[in-house]
Design a protein around this nucleic acid. Sequence first.
DNA 1: TTCAAAAGTTGCTATTTGCAACTAAATATG
DNA 2: CATATTTAGTTGCAAATAGCAACTTTTGAA
Lengths: 170, 170
Amino acid sequence: MKHNKLDDMNCSIATSLELIGEWWTILILREAFFGTRRFEDFQQYLGIARNILTTRLRKLCDGGLLQRVPIKEGAKRHEYKLTAMGRDLYPTLIALTQWGDRWLHLDGAPVKFIDHVTGEEIDDVAILSKQGKELDARDLLLIPGPGANEETKQRLSLLQIAWEKHHEGE
Amino acid sequence: MKHNKLDDMNCSIATSLELIGEWWTILILREAFFGTRRFEDFQQYLGIARNILTTRLRKLCDGGLLQRVPIKEGAKRHEYKLTAMGRDLYPTLIALTQWGDRWLHLDGAPVKFIDHVTGEEIDDVAILSKQGKELDARDLLLIPGPGANEETKQRLSLLQIAWEKHHEGE
DNA sequence: TTCAAAAGTTGCTATTTGCAACTAAATATG
DNA sequence: CATATTTAGTTGCAAATAGCAACTTTTGAA
């Protein structure tokens, strides 16, 4: 697929997928969150082809999610560590994990996420209003942000009309 | 890529990606959240090849994220609507959107998500403890859940040892 | 200094995508 | 009611990606 198209979509999901939407990439990030840092370890834990691993790691480094750092002071060998940008994807990955736990692993989650201070399981990742109320897909209205182009603005205004029509008389 | 391997990974991210990790799938879901329901509309808004759209929609229906329903009572033509399972992916997609907004759209988000009751923008999707405290990747401990197999258990116990070693003396 | 492991690279095959033309059925139109 | 126009795909072929396994080149260790 030519995803260079995706960047023109004026959509953060498309731009994000451009960077992390290829096969294996998200699993590589999962491994990174598990603490994996070395090429051989990624390769063995994931069973990914070595050439693909090479290109994915390079892309993640270029994109700023991982950084290559020497294993120790002055060493020539390096490891791949999550950057702040990479770590900031954790809510997304946990949301996806919990979704999979809820809908695809009916016999129980493989992994539990624990707050290591309290020892309690974390909450489900959710959409919250400023008041902390949990919101559903139907509670949301999409409006153009500061980065919206004309096409997006037009599309969202049509959406809003459709939304009002759909909910009129409630 | 043969992702049938992924299902054996005892990992909800892998199982989820098996279902929604192919090219275009997440963008199709984004469109669905925007309210798109008809084949031609998905095709035109996304610019996706028609045969790929066919296979993706079928997989999403088979997987339970979308359902085909008649356009109106008794009509032969149908549309693709999100199921509860599909709608439940919204936190994940919003988390990804916000991540893209933060790191890739530095000149401003294309779309803002508004709580239609209050008119305020929603909060950033985050990892929260039971007490509502926002947690970072480093605050979490991973432990085996009820669905963990032996391999997962072993791996997570090694991780826990590494984690303690890494943080000892803090 | 020798050796084995780490981190890729290369070349080839198999699988997926993309494209564009074609088809069949369903709805709309006169 | 007959005909035209959408809608929702299917098909076949070219181009791009992924998988596999063997090979190379540096390390770091003994």
